[in-house]
Design a protein around this nucleic acid. Sequence first.
RNA 1: GCCGACGUAGCUCAGCUGGUAGAGCAGCUGAUUCGUAAUCAGCAGGUCGUCAGUUCAAGUCUGACCGUCGGCUCCA
Length: 678
Amino acid sequence: MSSHTIAVHLPDGSVREVPAGTTPLDIANSISPRLAAASVVARLTPVTAAAQATPAGEGQESEASMYAAEQAGAPRLVDLSTPLTEDTRLELVTEKDTEALKVVRHSAAHVLATAVLELFPETKLGHGPATDAGFFYDFYREKPFTPEDLAAIEAKMAEVVARDEKFVHEFEPREKALAEFERDGDFMKTHFVTRFTEPGSEVSFYRNGKFVDFCRGPHVPSTARVKAFKVTNLAGAYWLGDEKNPQLQRVYGTAFFSKKEMDEHFARLEEAARRDHRVLGKQLDLFSIQDLAGAGLIFWHPKGAMIRKIMEDWMREECLRRGYQLVYTPHVARVNLWQTSGHEGFYAGNMFTPMELDDAMYRMKPMNCPFHILIYKNSPKSYRDLPARYAELGNVYRYERSGTMHGLLRVRGFTQDDAHIFCMPSQIESEVAACIDFAEAVLHTFGFKEFKVELSTWDPNDRAHYAGSDENWNLAIRSLDNVLKAKGIPYKTIAGEAAFYGPKIDVKLVDVLGRLWQLSTVQFDFNLPARFELEYVGEDGERHQPVMVHRALFGSVERFFGVLIEHYAGAFPLWLAPVQIGLVPISERHAEYAAKVEAELKAASFRVETDLRNEKMNAKIRDFANQKTPYILVFGDKEAAAGAVSVRTRGKGDQGSMPLADFIAKAKELVASQSTEL
RNA sequence: GCCGACGUAGCUCAGCUGGUAGAGCAGCUGAUUCGUAAUCAGCAGGUCGUCAGUUCAAGUCUGACCGUCGGCUCCA
């Protein structure tokens, strides 16, 4: 076997001739023991394919990338102990590589499973992958784990790590492995082996100490390389994600290369918790959810309502500027309407149950589309009327299951900044381009610098599943494609992700913590124009069916507001702050000057609050600061005499005294430019 | 909806193995009139999520329901 030598190409361009059977670890050791110690796994690229550089094109990423390791010629990760049998490019993957962290986490999941089986031998194993934030392992057992069990599991994991057990890659004939899993009642492992391996093949296992798991690997060399880990929480998860299946115990944990990195991770989580819009919503008195009224129903308090008013005013103005027409429609409609739209059939499960009135059954609207369609249909339309763009901040109500609500982000009653564009096929591309422009304007105006775009298209192999003509689908997808390309916006195409009624573009914004939020969406609808028999008379005098584009940019005003709160951690830019300026008279004898300052600021359209309480100035400053008020103006005898104010800027502290008129001019400028700076 | 945890004054939280509730902040009253992140004192605030049950006795134990949180699933 090791009779011949192979060529191993290293990243520095050097080539080593070594006997076949040499491992990456051997090579690492021969370079330097420190490199060997720092290496986690190895990345192999066949020399033949490596000649052509892999085109890492934007928009190329797809579901298939998950299986990239399976493709011939693509790089793959292997254990450091894997014998090399042919010429290859070799890269030793150290802790600097993001792939390496996933390997550590996956190995940590094995350590977790090892610990669980030692403590609770009756447990059946599901699977244990690495995730973006850590790892989990699914277990099945009659009795759920308790928080105390988790602590015991974590302690046992530390023992497994201390034992420094080698991860050994082993193979077993598939049928033998299956027989053993079936004998032991390991129904989940049986499923995975059956599903992911070929009959007659050798099945891959990893062993550490007495623990063996069906696994493709790769793994770190030994359990001691799982240096920093923590079991974080416990949750239920359905077997195969189907709620009809038994519920598993999913134990979550996370792992890092070092304690320091793990501490930073938990510090980030704390930062996210500090920004939690539900907590800030209470602290800043922005909104509430009332038990007496019901879950998922939002009460906007005066300060939250002020921000909402500013958002809505901006949105309506912008719609008018961009050629939309504003409409208002009811919150309920007869069931007949929902039958015509089809919602009664395919969306009923997400709708509030019908209510009976004397003349008919009614339902709350879950979407605005049918209403806008009725407006369109109310009078005959000519091609001269198109595109018709109807916009509404429409309140919709959807039945969300009780466990799924989440603050402002997932609710039962919400407001969509909804618009429907009825146009001719020839107008599609310019309309889509305008929508994308608008979406960018929304994000930039509200202070988001980054976003990601996804194009969801159909699965042409499943044609029967989709409404609308091939012609329309192709035209729509092509125009969505064209617009994104023309604008140079990087995007990801996801085939088969479109709704049955049309393709769509989703815009996900990235907040200051790097989290993704799905908000804006631009969707084609080939279904409703047909159901409602929409038409317009063309230049040719014939009747045609218009194309309908549905778009929401905030997505939902509630959700957008929730994301805004977290993005700014409650410290809103001046133009959005519910109270822009807090006035702090130093003692009661300055109340008169306070009234004068307040009047001048209000005359300049600022939102002002004066603290006339019999409190020390420090307490007043503190209270305004805790409310994240952008500007606090302090004044006493000196300022009153000079017609000045002492300006304290949020995040910057005392800026010294300046004439009130100067402050007003500066603040006006910041509001006008919707600045995020103070 | 499902699994797990939780629900005590407006807010944040104490209350051990059952013996009819506490603190800080906020609020109110009074004193203090203050120069850049909490002045002092006093007063008032709760049928301990709801409804049943066990018990001589329930915030504490049991059950159901409502809600919240972490997930699953789903989605704007």
